[in-house]
Design a protein around this nucleic acid. Structure first.
Lengths: 344, 344
DNA sequence: TGTTTTTACGAAAACGTTTGAGTAAATAAA
DNA sequence: TTTATTTACTCAAACGTTTTCGTAAAAACA
């Protein structure tokens, strides 16, 4: 490693060696017109030669832009989110934006703190997938009030909120899952849902309900569960469902972690899947394809969602730039699809 | 939502209403001594009341600190990394640092670009888990030369590099896995390794080798594979291993994705696991516990690793602050452990 | 040719903080 | 009492950009 001390250069240093003013260098860097082609290339060459990098804090101070986007997400280890984040990041990187990823760990308190932190960091925009328990979205007000655009995705505000909203077609997902089970002959279908505070579970439940009603199947309240979707809760639900006959012949679990635990429980009590019991999960977690039998689930196309998010964000930031305060907040629904596997 | 336009305040605004100079406000904010207790509390109260947030760009411009740490990682969806990142982030947040997470997607080209980007963003330090194929670490030179501390973890430079290095005890991991198989009676043990360019695979292989030699077992070159560890390559390896007898009776896979594919292949060709074939994976991916039979694997304690990383980083940043140029680069090895499950 | 318009640049004032130097007032030491 | 020290503050100069305004020179036009 050569120990050449790469000293930091400023716009003034470039200007001095080229007998120009700092203003001209700045104009070159920002692709301003009204700078002669020959000086532009001289400047570019010198910038390259001296290894100059603009100081984002200085320009940020002046322009009030950080070129940084904040992202709040429950947990990056959740597969769908990991995929979405990856896409968002790659896309944003292409546009010259940095991404600060924050995890709320499904805690509302943490989510509140993170919005404050992001506000304090002066990010140019915030992308958020809220916690399961976020029903009051007022901690995002401070961003909206200060004209920091907010994009919600996945878990989004239920009531109107002045922000762009991008959500999966959870209604259709719920419908597809239930219709699939019904089509395969299931008549006693149980549904393990997340808490109905959260947009996605409200919609999935509505879709489920529609399919059931359409086929004139009863929705038995003791076959429907609402709770945070983790393995322990899934197990408790299963214990209740299989406490006495008649057993359900189909279970729709509103996420894959739950579906996997359902399967695991069914195996333990020697209920045959898919023979005696058919199971549908949600999200196409990588685990769902390797388990035996492999799990039928709803695909959410996370990469597509990520792209849509960035596309909308760029539109918003451009419009923000033009100071056209057309306060329109697009609401976009992204597609879902059923992946049929061995559990049905 | 109240539409109260929270106008941005500066240190000057606070100073004016309190009949003080901006310098005093600044000193309060930075806990400088030589400011009277009574004025300190007056200032704090006013800051709170006016909802003032310091502008990080202005202070960053002045102090040349961003309070932001850059992180380069192959993929956040890899479980171990997701866990480590989560811990790092939570710890850093407590210290008032932001984290910019970048994914190299195991591409050296991308990794190079990301180091440049992070350098240009003026992060205070960089934490990096390199790609599988990074053998030349010179793209990190620009950081080191400019006194931006670098901490490598997981996949670390093989040859000396002026940076802090934190790695799992891969030698021990390899040894534990092989010794476990041997202890259970395996005599024809195959090993599916990642490319031997990468520190972790070098060490795991060495550990594997030591256990084999210790028990006077032969290392057959046609039972050892070196390639990027993904499902397709694992399948190819298995096809070769089970092309003709004698079949291996134990397989050590250097990551869990490979181990899972090995298991899946074994099932397909009706080789009984663990009866005919025992399998050990690496990393304790969540999938390894839900597959049937569940997978024996090596635990890396990612949360502990994350904590160690942040602890070391804080030490370095503090020492950096004191301008004590004691150029010591600690090298820390974190523990691993065997998790025995049904595949052995 | 002279006049107007356009082009290519420079000067200088911001942006909001930190910090060294300077200075009154208060306190301690002689 | 005078002198030295400490305390609590102010002043003003940075940090590295961007951007408005101004102005020569060049180009276009009459």
């Amino acid at each position: 490693m050569k120990k050449k001390q790469t000293q930091k250069h400023s716009i003034h240093d470039i200007a001095k060696v080229l007998q120009l003013s700092p203003a001209t260098i700045s104009r070159v860097l920002n692709n301003h017109p009204h700078v002669h082609q020959s000086t532009r290339s001289r400047v570019m060459a010198m910038i390259d030669h001296m290894g100059y990098k603009p100081n984002p804090m200085a320009s940020g101070l002046r322009t009030n832009k950080t070129n940084t986007i904040g992202l709040i997400v429950p947990r990056i280890s959740m597969f769908v989110h990991a995929e979405i984040i990856t896409t968002i990041q790659n896309e944003l990187h292409a546009f010259g934006y940095n991404l600060i990823i924050c995890q709320s760990n499904d805690s509302v308190k943490m989510e509140k703190e993170l919005t404050r932190t992001l506000y304090a960091s002066r990010v140019d925009a915030v992308i958020a997938a809220c916690t399961l328990f976020t029903t009051d979205f007022s901690h995002f007000d401070i961003l909206v009030q200060n004209n920091i655009p907010v994009i919600f995705y996945d878990r989004v505000p239920v009531r109107p909120y002045p922000a762009c909203i991008i959500k999966g077609d959870d209604f259709r997902g719920g419908y597809l899952a239930a219709a699939h089970l019904i089509e395969l002959g299931c008549r006693r279908i149980a549904y393990i849902s997340g808490p109905l505070l959260c947009s996605i579970y409200i919609d999935r439940y509505a879709g489920f309900k529609k399919a059931m009603l359409q086929h004139e199947l009863p929705i038995l309240t003791n076959q429907i569960f609402y709770h945070e979707l983790n393995a322990e809760n899934a197990r408790k639900a299963m214990e209740k469902l299989f406490a006495k006959k008649p057993y359900p012949d189909g279970i729709f679990a509103a996420n894959d972690v739950t579906a996997l635990e359902v399967l695991s429980f069914a195996k333990e009590i020697n209920v045959q899947v898919p023979g005696d019991l058919k199971i549908v999960g949600y999200s196409n977690d990588p685990r769902s394809s390797i388990v035996t039998p492999s799990m039928t689930t709803i695909e959410q196309f996370p990469m597509h969602t990520g792209k849509v998010i960035v596309t909308e964000l760029m539109k918003i930031l451009k419009r923000e730039l033009n100071k056209k305060d057309s306060i329109e907040f697009p609401q976009i629904t992204t597609a879902v699809g059923l992946i049929r596997r061995m559990s049905t």
